[in-house]
């Protein structure tokens, strides 16, 4: 009994902070999404017009589709890259010391500024950037490629650059916990490297894959900075739509969009969670 009280007391700061800065704000968004507004202020009310305008606008559907497309492409590439990197680290780097060092090498960029990392693509992808210069000097193209920077291509590239790590870490974490005896047993039973990968490692790495997928999909679905910076204003995302509504002071419209986005993201995650119980994996 005393232990339970102590645990409650120890957990209370976390509960309080998340309550005040997560639960109440989301509640506020839900409330405000039913408010009315005009060009200068928001009017406390209970109207469905914000949802009406949102859900019956073709722009909304187009934007959601576009965002889902970004999420799907980014997810697929991150999964491929993240899995390969994690597999190399977990199964092909023999010394634990080297494993830690290489893992840190992958992690360090995560601790630096995302915006700076996006900007740093300009000298690479720009019209006079390194890639165009290189391609032109070898004669592969005779005019600079325009689609490299400020395009959907650049957006996806930046997503993979920023978020591939979200896939590497959980998959690596799942992989290092795979009992090496299982791999040995499969080899002794005559399995080749591919078969071991396909029938032993991938099934056992599934929780990591699920967690990585959830993280990548969640960040891409809510993103607006990358889309704005890397598409040069030529592409849209749900997050960007919200931010634009906010800058026009249409808070209730932004709030309604936020509620819809939250529901969509939660549904996607609930679907992915059916594959794995994350609490068991920590």
């Amino acid at each position: 009994m005393k232990g339970k009280l102590a645990a409650l007391a120890l957990a209370s700061p976390l509960a309080l902070l998340l309550g005040v800065f997560l639960v109440v704000p989301i509640g506020t968004i839900v409330v405000v999404s039913f408010f009315d507004y005009d060009s200068v202020r928001i009017i406390p009310d209970f109207v469905w017009t914000n949802y009406d305008e949102l859900l019956f606008s073709p722009i909304t559907w187009k934007t959601y589709l576009q965002t889902l497309k970004f999420a799907a492409i980014t997810w697929a590439i991150c999964l491929l890259v993240g899995f390969t990197v994690a597999y190399f680290l977990a199964f092909h780097v023999a010394s634990p010391m080297m494993q830690t060092v290489l893992f840190l090498v992958c992690t360090i960029p995560f601790w630096t500024s995302n915006i700076i990392r996006m900007i740093s693509w300009i000298p690479f992808l720009g019209r006079n950037g390194l890639l165009n210069q290189a391609l032109m000097s070898v004669g592969a193209i005779d005019q600079p490629l325009e689609f490299l920077l400020f395009s959907d291509f650049a957006v996806v590239l930046a997503y993979v650059h920023l978020y591939a790590l979200f896939m590497v870490v959980p998959i690596f974490n799942s992989m290092v916990r795979i009992d090496r005896a299982l791999v040995e047993a499969a080899r002794d039973a005559g399995a080749g490297e591919w078969q071991v990968l396909r029938h032993v490692i991938i099934p056992l790495a599934r929780p990591g894959i699920a967690i990585g997928s959830i993280l990548v999909v969640a960040v891409v679905m809510g993103d607006f900075v990358t889309v704005r910076l890397m598409s040069g204003g030529q592409s849209a995302s749900v997050g960007l739509m919200m931010v634009n509504a906010m800058s026009l002071l249409q808070y209730p419209a932004a709030a309604a969009n936020a509620v819809v986005l939250l529901i969509v993201v939660l549904l996607m995650i609930a679907a992915m969670l059916r594959i794995v119980d994350i609490r068991k994996e920590l």
């Binding site: 800065f21 997560l22 109440v24 704000p25 989301i26 506020t28 968004i29 959830i214 993280l215 969640a218 960040v219 679905m221 809510g222 993103d223 607006f224 997050g239 919200m242 931010v243 906010m246 932004a254 709030a255 936020a258 986005l261 939250l262 993201v265 939660l266 995650i269």
Partner: peptide, 11 residues
């Protein structure tokens, strides 16, 4: 961790 950052900010 999963709720989009912009939503927390807005809220």
């Amino acid at each position: 961790l999963i709720v989009p950052s912009v939503l927390v900010s807005l809220g």
